[in-house]
Design a binder for these strands. Structure first.
Length: 581
DNA sequence: GCCGTTTTCGGCCCGACTGTTTTCAGTCG
């Protein structure tokens, strides 16, 4: 059983224990253990084999033995027993808004409910409202929650969330009574998938701002409204929360609502260790609960909060408690990539395969947005569903590209299209022979038809990396966010192979992919693997993925140096040739 | 269930909101 599967089981054990009414600190220990695994950078089997599980944060005797059992036998009797003792429907009930473990227990014990459908029926005939601790409103809220779940997904891809959030942020910024405003939460941390949108505003007239917010276009319904905060459901089913604070509180509220929860816990602990107290209202010189302004450590910005806790500023993307504190203490945080440093994309399509733009339009668009180069890497022939090119059509395409480049040269501009291919990784090698690949400036190798076996996919990717004509591996896991899981592959082995062979790995910035995942980049870069942030553009507006992908690269601790498409065209050409040499 | 230059036992981050309550439990972030 692999790392992610084991982590998911630990998480589930935590939830199951909660439903059984276990000690909350015990349940938390399991979810801490799961998180610890998720950020593990070396192979889990290796850790187990070398008896080093105890090195993981939050891993004591019990977790070590349970995880070792899962990894070596693929099963865990304790977990199986636990699962049997809790009806599966209870886990589903838990995901309804306003329903937590205590209420699920009550619904189960008092009414004998074991499924969401049964819960819905119980709400309809009033049995839920009659329970102690429930009432008409909670019953109604549960019904609405069930209906909402059926209509909308509860998680949203980052690009979709940004598209909704940015106009709202602009609207808030334009309000005359708004002093400062920002997005917060997982959106500001640039998580690839977000649950809801968070906004923080400072103002002297919170009621006006809240009125304005709940009446913005796109607000479908108002799910909560108090003196300082409001929650709304937007068109498409995304929930958005706004918190309005005094301007002196703004940096504290912004840091607090940006999270992550795990990051905030460490921040508070650092405050406590210095005899201070940190919350969303301020940093106070008192261990007691207080909002006494006389005891406030004044901070105008988030930067000053970090300084007060002896840290350098931690960019929002890094606030996951995955090593940022160790680095920020010693002022050794990396200088993260900026998306404006990107000079082009090295994996893109045109109408020659499954893209929507002609070569001329591809070039014009890339030039227009200020890129120095743009590679055309249409599919190879085995991707027949995508109208992949055979050798003859590829040769024609090279001539067409040469003609377009000539016209840019004649016009005195330095912009160039680069020739290339997204060559299929097949069972027994690549879809083009080496002598064809050798004629192309950029070769991306991608696995489009994976095997069922992890070892087989790993073997194919490593073999592709070992080919001197392959510059980079494309979308190395094949995942589609919220739609399709990664194919099974041993990424550690693939990353090692890329480090050894000098093969770059793509960060595919398509809004559905964001693949390779940000969690792998820090360790990959340490091993010397270079990143390329590619749009995998099929349409003109996909050029915008550069910004999306750069944010994911930042989340993976990458700097300008780590990313090859920050290079100028001459530098890039030199690097492309280096692999072949 | 985990953890320890205060501790191997007794803690474990913290506050707001909601709904059901006359003082608070549960949920959420």
């Amino acid at each position: 059983m692999n790392r992610d599967e084991v982590a998911a089981i630990l998480e589930e054990i935590g939830v199951l224990l909660e439903l059984k009414g276990e000690n909350p600190f015990k349940t938390r220990a399991y979810s801490t253990g799961a998180r610890s695994l998720e950020s593990l950078e070396e192979p889990l089997e290796k850790l187990v084999a070398e008896n080093r599980l105890g090195e993981l944060k939050g891993f004591g005797e019990a977790l070590q033995s349970k995880v070792a059992t899962l990894v070596t036998t693929g099963t865990l009797p304790y977990y199986e027993e636990l699962k049997k003792s809790v009806p599966a429907g209870l886990l589903e009930m838990l995901r309804l808004p306003g329903v937590g473990p205590k209420k699920v227990r009550k619904l189960h014990q008092e009414l004998g409910l074991t499924t969401v459908d049964a819960l819905e029926a119980a709400c309809r005939d009033g049995r839920v409202a009659a329970l102690d601790g429930f009432g008409e409103k909670s019953q109604q809220k549960i019904l609405e929650g069930i209906a909402f779940r059926r209509q909308f997904a509860s998680r949203h891809r980052l690009a979709q969330a940004l598209a909704v959030a940015e106009p709202i942020l602009d609207a808030l910024r334009s309000h005359p009574e708004v002093l400062r405003c920002s997005t917060a939460g997982s959106l500001r941390r640039w998580k690839e998938v977000v649950g809801d949108l968070d906004f923080v505003v400072s103002s002297k007239t919170p009621a006006d701002i809240l009125d304005f917010f709940v009446s913005l276009p796109g607000v479908e319904s108002i799910s909560g409204r108090g003196d300082t905060k409001a929650s709304v459901i937007l068109t498409g089913g995304i929930q958005a929360d706004l918190r309005v604070v005094a301007d002196s509180e703004f940096p504290f509220a912004l840091a607090y609502f940006t999270g992550s929860k795990e990051h905030n816990i460490v921040m508070r602990q650092r405050a406590i260790a210095r005899g201070l107290r940190l919350n969303e209202y301020g940093l106070f010189r008192s261990a007691e609960e207080t909002r006494d302004p006389a005891k406030l450590v004044r901070c105008q910005t988030e930067d000053e909060i970090f300084r007060a806790l002896d840290l350098e500023f931690i960019p929002p993307e890094l606030r996951e408690d995955l090593g940022e504190f160790v680095a920020a203490e010693s002022a050794s945080l990396p200088r993260l990539l900026e998306w404006t440093q990107l000079k082009g994309s090295l994996h893109n399509h045109s109408t020659w395969s499954d893209g929507r733009q002609s070569l001329e339009d591809v070039a014009a668009r890339a030039h227009e947005i200020g890129c120095a180069y743009w590679a055309v890497t249409d599919h190879s022939k085995s991707s027949f569903q995508a109208n992949g090119l055979d050798v003859a059509r590829l040769r024609q395409q090279l001539q067409a590209i040469a003609a377009i480049n000539q016209s840019y040269q004649d016009a005195g501009t330095d912009f160039r299209l680069l020739t290339g291919t997204e060559v299929d990784i097949l069972k027994d090698g690549l879809d083009f022979p080496d002598e064809v690949l050798a004629q192309l400036e950029v070769v991306v190798a991608s696995l489009h038809v994976p095997a069922r076996e992890e070892a087989e996919n790993t073997r194919r990717l490593i073999r592709a990396a070992q080919n001197p004509y392959v510059h980079m591996l494309g979308h190395p896991t094949g995942r589609l966010l919220l739609e399709r899981d990664a194919y099974p592959v041993d990424l550690h082995a693939v990353i090692e192979a890329c480090a050894e062979t000098g093969t770059w790995i793509e960060l595919n910035a398509s809004s559905y992919r964001l693949d390779l995942d940000w969690r792998f980049w820090r360790s990959a870069a340490r091993k010397g693997v270079r990143c390329v942030i590619n749009c995998d553009a099929h349409r003109a507006d996909h050029a915008g993925f550069l910004r999306l992908g750069a944010g994911i690269a930042r989340k993976g601790w990458l700097t300008r140096d780590d990313v090859m498409n920050t290079r100028s065209l001459p530098e890039l050409r030199q690097a492309l040739n280096a692999k072949r040499a």
